[in-house]
Design a protein around this nucleic acid. Structure first.
Lengths: 221, 221
DNA sequence: CGTTGCGTTGATCTCTATCAAAAAAGGTGG
DNA sequence: CCACCTTTTTTGATAGAGATCAACGCAACG
């Protein structure tokens, strides 16, 4: 997979026009970190932010007494130190790889320049942000208001696609990941699926879930 | 409350510099809608987006057969039709007040102009978005990983302020709202508070929660 | 003083995480 | 293609967290 393709997988960049993406590819860098390698230290000048392709990176502080406190552990798919892009001049904490990791490093100033002299890009990014905000708020609502069956029903209805008159949801990964995405565990997820299958509301084939009765499914939300 | 103050309450605008906010106040409009009044129709030119001060507004479509389907019901505090700001030329659905409502109407083009010729504003807005994204992701993690006590502990630790050597969390609204914010109900929230009070980890005074033992509180996360 | 809304407490019941184990699905090598 | 092993998924039994329902204390307020 080349640089450009990898960049497109990062949510923040996924809606960027091709032209800008190529510029971005021009100044971003791919970096590999060995386990325990330090990425940056507290108070270092914040020149870049990062996207994790693989591995894990922790963000931590060390107290005057030498006590270490970990704030966050970022994993593959995360963007981090991005606060540095928009406000801070220095990093607010230390960062160290806790596994061998691969990162994309994006220099802050080049990125800001890219944004600033391209209103269209700005709007695209804002739009991407808006959509993401909306979907996160939606997820929070679901988690706090709905039980597992309802969350599953909602998820299927929101993510299905019509295919030969039928609504089908296809997934690539494992059911375990779907379960986690819905804020539950594989066992409970399996039981929720079973529930709808027994009621003939859905049907499973390989890695497809076919919705047989959308109205009934909706009624569980 | 004047126009400017009201605007500051809208998250999207809350981090805008005063100067720009005043411009915004110059071209936004306050509108009142009677129950059942139509705000815009599907395919109408999308000239504005809206913030709801009070009331409820639904977004809906009508099928060729005359069947109506409601997509969303927006309530006070929501921004809506904001997709229109960033990508679309026309509204993607109809919108109608389902209660008497009051809205702030923000013309899209004026708003875009405000953004576009002010890179600093752009960055501010992006920064605000970033922070909000982060906090929402954090909330999702909490909801799916932590029990009520842990969520309360985390929330208090994240939102407390030092005051005379003590860490204090002050709230303005009701406990009911705090409960909902933590994804639970007043009864359970009250029990969680009681749990920490009995353990002498926190103390309540009026609308303040005083953290007596931060270490112990942390240990519940 | 009644009334109204908020907060707390108690009793109960449901949902779902957990633990344990079986079943099914995928690989792998012969 | 089959036997074997690993991983994923399902099923069952159990326990615990938290929602629900009901009732009461309490303050603000007309």
């Amino acid at each position: 997979m080349n640089k450009l393709e990898r960049l497109k997988e990062v949510f923040l960049f996924s809606m960027m026009p091709e032209e800008q993406l190529q510029k971005l590819a021009g100044f971003c860098a791919f970096r590999k970190l060995k386990r325990n390698e330090i990425l940056f230290l507290d108070e270092d000048k914040a020149t870049s932010f990062y996207y994790i392709i693989s591995g894990k990176v922790k963000i931590y502080k060390v107290s005057p007494a030498g006590q270490e406190y970990t704030f966050e552990i970022h994993k593959s798919g995360d963007i981090f130190a991005e606060a540095a892009i928009f406000d801070r001049e220095t990093y607010p904490a230390n960062s160290q790889a806790i596994e061998d990791s691969e990162l994309i490093q994006i220099p802050k100033n080049d990125f800001i320049a890219l944004i600033v002299d391209s209103p269209r890009l700005t709007l695209k990014i804002m739009h991407a942000y808006s959509r993401r905000l909306r979907s996160l708020v939606d997820m929070i609502e679901s988690l706090s208001m709905l039980d597992i069956k309802a969350r599953l029903a909602k998820y299927l209805l929101q993510n299905c696609q019509t295919e030969g008159g039928l609504c089908v949801f296809k997934y690539k990964s494992t059911k375990k990941e779907l379960a986690l995405l819905l804020g539950t565990i594989p066992e409970s997820f399996s039981r929720a699926l079973k529930f709808f299958k027994e009621k003939k509301i859905i049907e499973e084939k390989q890695k497809k879930i076919i919705i047989l009765n959308m109205e009934k499914l909706k009624s569980f939300i």
